[in-house]
Write a protein that binds this DNA or RNA. Structure first.
Lengths: 143, 143
DNA sequence: CTGATTGCAAATGCTTTGCATACAA
DNA sequence: TTGTATGCAAAGCATTTGCAATCAG
């Protein structure tokens, strides 16, 4: 049973190897959960809960999730984002883009960067150039 | 000695009262350190070190600094800002503005918002409106 | 085999809380 | 006097680390 997962698993293994990471069981498992074609935002703990509440497969320790996500980020498979202090969000979308955050629902989504532009940027300090610009559009329910 | 601090101290007391906060010794001391006409960014721990390394006056506990800064923020005397996860920056500038952050020097500065404009903002989710837009321009040393 | 990875528990860093004491009004 | 603030130590999160056991190549 479940022979149909073998091909995706092989893709994940390749993805990991191309990123310079050894395709261990845990890393492949995390890839399966994350890279299914739909971009998503999540915290380490959310991923931990998903993996451990799903019936299939063994559980991963929270420390391993943290370490693996950190490794994925350093390898360029994920990007990170801080909306408010004290919690780090991971993002499967690694291209440059902006975010919308709805504080009341604690929900985070991508904004398409291509249509957006920042005008009137002041001069930067001597000897510095722009690395990147982070934008978070914070929304609230309409009055 | 030090009679010249009495007038600023009275100003700080008034500032606190107008914000609905009782002007205790500690709160006035923190105001003296923060509100001297120059906008600044700092963490609770930085302020703690400044206050306790300065020769004058008694020391404040770190917990009191945290609690006081939180109270000041709720009262509108300070704003907060998260550059990277795990550390909260306070800002004496409470008007709407953007920031530049130099990762290599860990230094944070204001950007004048009046000259800046964000173009091409996509539609927001149904029933939502913009609360505010946060922008952090991340710089790096010129190659 | 052999070095890289994992799991766990303990450690860390930042921030908040509980509660007795001190203080402003 | 009387309720509000403070100080301290302890608790609380999110995250990292040390190290022995396990696994991939």
């Amino acid at each position: 049973m479940n022979l149909d997962v073998s091909l995706p698993a092989r893709n994940h293994a390749r993805r990991l190897q191309e990123a310079g990471l050894r395709p261990t069981r845990q890393r492949v498992r995390i890839c399966e959960q994350l890279f299914n074609g739909i971009d998503r935002h999540f915290t380490a703990e959310e991923l931990f809960n998903e993996l451990n509440h799903s019936a299939q497969g063994e559980s991963l320790s929270l420390a391993t999730i943290y370490n693996t996500l950190k490794g994925f980020t350093e390898a360029g498979l994920l990007s990170t984002l801080t909306v408010d202090s004290g919690k780090l969000y991971y993002d499967t979308n690694t291209s440059h883009h902006y975010h919308v955050y709805d504080a009341s629902g604690r929900c985070l989504a991508d904004l398409d960067t291509t249509s957006m532009k920042v005008q009137g940027l002041p001069d930067l300090p001597e000897g510095h150039e722009i690395d990147r610009i982070d934008i978070i559009v914070r929304t609230k329910p309409k009055a």
